[in-house]
Design a protein around this nucleic acid. Structure first.
Lengths: 345, 345
DNA sequence: TCCGATGATGAAAGCGCTATCATCCGCTAC
DNA sequence: GTAGCGGATGATAGCGCTTTCATCATCGGA
């Protein structure tokens, strides 16, 4: 291949080459280049090879913006998570990203900061970019979202919950069933006064559901639930530390702490270590999420394993299936959970 | 506003409205709509108001793909991180995302899995989407990347390191200086045989640099560095646990473990707890990163605080400045680090 | 009274691709 | 021999916007 200087078909100096430049260089029409790149089987091997060579010589990079406009599909999926500073959602994003990447799709990511209005505006922005699909976290959205999505006509997957009225598809699990199961486990293991540690009422949809499950486990057995110890910030161990202190002061004595997530549980366990409180001897601690560190804490954290990465992967696959024109059945996938009993309860 | 049925200027049924539909409805030309939306100050208040009303009535969402093609700017920034399953990079992405969001930019995210070829192909894909800027992690890239970026002519920020030959701009810190400072601290505090726990040689750029700093701190004082305890996976506490076991078996006795990151350090501390090894009495443990949990471990983790979120924010701001046509000086920003001494060393 | 500013609006020309339809060739089938 | 067909290629028309340039009032100053 000639390295020296631009030839006839070469791109004008200083401009990034376009498909027409490649075409000229390869001595074919623009359409043929488009086909050679997009549907190579429609082009003869020699032509394809000439095009490939021209692409390489010019360093041509197809403009996917133009392609998207012409084909009205972007191969972009938008995802909104409450926060990235949290390994749980990060795992989902990672799973999603990998599935999409393998299919040549790209991920447009936004974080809502647990604010449904920001979620709404991010979703709108993604749709404005003509994302082919959307992945959302949770079931609580602005009322207007439904209309915006319907108007755009793109497939959507909600994750991390099992909404009563899904927008479209769901890849999630039941937070209340999981919390109920965890609570039932604690009761079965002999704990009698189980406090729930989490956000106040209405603080956040998933925390609320978990609290509901905890309450129901008691109700189903005719027991009265223990106290709800409210924390301000569910994403810091500090809340767990404070909760332990409060729990120890309560009478009748609380013998187990069910934390709305593992970060809080870690705070509680650490506070116990510092205060010399035996876990689970004096007080048991259970978490929710089963983060990486759960088995490594001392004592190992009893918790609920949730399908973080799988939700992302499944959401991605559902979207891709739908975009490929395949029917997605069922539209609501419950990825389940698992009670993981370690030493802390 | 009339709810009932489409009117003259309304969009054809079943199609999503375009700018022309809005224009017809508002009784102005398409250009005016474009201006009313993009540069409202160029349009009279009444007209602007008519357009706004028409937009609302039709539920019009501008097509940013078309806009991008026409204006040749996408307001999209692409970012590549090694992994999201790691709170360190997640913090950077979060910081970046927030800065971009506030400026009306969107984030296209990819994870390379610590593979430079995947980084390269992601970067190329982002450039194909005509991202206005790129944020990369680290300084080790495929050779071809430089040319691809130069060809696209977009601003780039490298993060998490201080590359010797930056691609363009940098928002990072010196891993070797930080590791050297941490090691110097350990030496100052009286530890004499400090093992480094991290990936094997050449495993990863940042781990290598940290090891280099550890070695240099010794060399500068005419001391011989302790052993390098290699682990397979630096992102799991398991490596730290294994490392502790190996360290305890060494003679002469290792009295401090300097782990290439906090996750490994956590593994080591936990292993000590389990084995009843006093920290720092028998062996001190230092980490790198200062993740959320560091102050909450028992004992609190002595570590290096790195500017995770700030690198993301700074990278975002540098990009935005450059895109706004402002000069960015200096192009290499060292965000520094901080030695945080807690109880573990 | 006329003129160049100034402000508000519009018409037309693309941005760089893909979709669609047309063309052309060589081949098989009768 | 020729109709018919599939494979390979090309010409053309947009995709829905922004940009640029043109138009046309309106207005204060000479």
């Amino acid at each position: 291949m000639s390295e020296d200087g631009r030839q006839d078909g070469g791109a004008r100096r200083g401009r990034r080459p376009r498909m027409a430049d490649v075409a000229a260089r390869a001595g074919v029409s623009l359409v043929t280049v488009s086909r050679a790149l997009g549907q190579p089987q429609l082009v003869s091997p020699e032509t394809r090879q000439r095009v490939t060579a021209a692409v390489a010589e010019l360093g041509y990079l197809p403009d996917l913006v133009a392609g998207s406009l012409a084909s009205s599909q972007t191969r972009i999926v938008g995802a909104v998570v409450p926060t990235l500073a949290n390994s749980f959602f990060a795992a989902s994003v990672q799973g999603l990203s990998e599935v999409l990447d393998a299919a040549g799709y790209q991920l447009l990511l936004g974080n809502s900061g647990y604010d449904t209005r920001r979620e709404q505006s991010l979703a709108a922005a993604f749709l404005g970019r003509r994302a082919d699909g959307l992945v959302l976290t949770g079931s609580r959205h602005e009322a207007a979202l439904r209309g915006v999505i319907a108007g755009a006509g793109v497939p959507v997957v909600e994750t991390w919950e099992l909404p009563a009225e899904p927008l479209d598809m769901v890849a999630g699990f039941s937070n209340d069933a999981a919390a109920e199961a965890m609570t039932a486990g604690l009761l079965d293991w002999g704990y009698r006064r189980i406090a729930f540690v989490g956000l106040p009422d209405g603080g956040e949809s998933r925390s609320d559901q978990r609290r509901k499950g905890w309450r129901r486990a008691h109700a189903d057995r005719g027991l009265e639930a223990g106290p709800h110890i409210a924390v301000e910030d569910a994403n810091s161990p500090v809340g767990g530390e404070a909760a332990l202190e409060r729990a120890l002061a309560l009478a009748p004595a609380v013998d187990a702490l069910f934390c709305a997530n593992d970060t809080l549980a870690l705070g509680a366990i650490v506070a116990c270590q510092k205060a010399g409180v035996a876990v689970p001897g004096r007080i048991a601690v259970a978490g929710f999420g089963d983060f990486d560190l759960a088995p490594h804490l001392v004592p190992g954290l009893t918790t609920v394993r949730v399908p973080g990465g799988e939700m992302g992967e499944t959401a991605g696959r559902m979207l891709l299936d739908r975009l490929a024109g395949r029917r997605v059945e069922p539209r609501v996938v419950d990825l389940g959970f698992e009670i993981v009993r370690r030493a802390s309860a």
